[in-house]
């Protein structure tokens, strides 16, 4: 942050006030979500806004025991981790070539990939559905994983290419002299240096993949493969008459992303800023 001369003028107070109001506006819905999820349904009506009278976990227990929420959690985790793994591997492989082994057309190829940052993949949904049916991947987590990888690659290549470019060529030359092959240079030298950027790519992609609702809605049909957002949407009807359940469901869908964000916020914000500004 910038070190500026302190000016305790009127504007500072205005900014303080703005920040305070904004804090309330952000936190109130989240507070409401968590607090309501800890109340039994009857209490929500009598005491909709206050803190819960007791720490009631019944809503969560119901969701896990009766609604298979644990299974949906596992499905989401599988989708997220497999997708992230592939995004990172595939993007860093390609980024290595684009950054250090440029050839005729590699600049074009780079722009070709980066254009994906603003191409909404949803516009290809019908054909994706058709393709997944053809591959026999319809109604499997694999279909959603493939889509997530394709959506994540542009950002991965964008960030990682930039980062690899900054790695001094001398380092690679030295390794070549030591007899390292290119793949070995990649795995032994580039990857370890790349870790902070990989962290950014991972965290920035984690959130949209975890939250994706559109493709699971279109591609997944059976209960056994539902992801958390899809289950949340489809169970909304089942529990909509019980607000305690609804809020517990929303809380459970949000906790993983919020925790990940809070732990990794530095890499997250860094990745996003670079992604947004250089684009």
């Amino acid at each position: 942050m910038m070190k500026r001369r302190k000016r305790s003028t009127l504007s500072t107070y205005v900014y303080y006030l703005a920040m305070f109001v904004y804090f309330i506006v952000i936190m109130y819905p989240l507070y409401l979500m968590v607090v309501t999820s800890l109340k039994p349904n009857a209490e929500i009506f009598k005491n909709p806004l206050g803190p819960p009278r007791s720490f009631y976990l019944g809503n969560f227990i119901t969701l896990i025991s009766r609604a298979n929420f644990n299974l949906y959690f596992l499905n989401s985790l599988v989708v997220v981790f497999v997708s992230l793994f592939c995004i990172i591997i595939f993007s860093s492989l390609a980024a290595f070539i684009l950054a250090k082994h440029g050839f005729k057309g590699s600049t074009f190829l780079y722009s070709f990939f980066v254009a994906g940052l603003i191409i909404p993949i949803r516009l290809g949904t019908i054909s994706i559905l058709k393709m997944m049916i053809g591959f026999g991947l319809h109604d499997t987590l694999g279909s959603v994983i493939l889509v997530s990888i394709a959506t994540g690659i542009p950002f991965g290549i964008f960030i990682l290419t930039d980062f690899i470019r900054m790695i001094p060529d001398d380092l690679m030359h030295a390794a070549r002299i030591d007899g390292y092959s290119e793949p070995k240079i990649f795995s032994r030298i580039i990857i370890p240096l790349l870790l902070p950027a990989i962290a950014s790519v991972a965290v920035v992609n984690f959130i949209p993949i975890w939250n994706d609702f559109w493709f699971p809605l279109i591609l997944l049909k059976s209960q056994s493969v539902r992801t958390v957002p899809l289950a949340t949407a489809l169970l909304f009807g089942q529990f909509s008459t019980n607000y305690g359940h609804v809020f517990a469901m929303l809380t459970m869908a949000s906790v993983p992303v919020v925790i990940t964000y809070l732990i990794f916020s530095r890499w997250f914000l860094k990745g996003l800023t670079e992604g947004g500004l250089k684009g």
Binding site: C86, G116, I119, I121, G124, T125, I128, M131
Partner: peptide, 10 residues
């Protein structure tokens, strides 16, 4: 993956 899942379907 990028071409076949993102571009061609569009």
């Amino acid at each position: 993956i990028y071409t076949f899942i993102l571009l061609i379907p569009i």
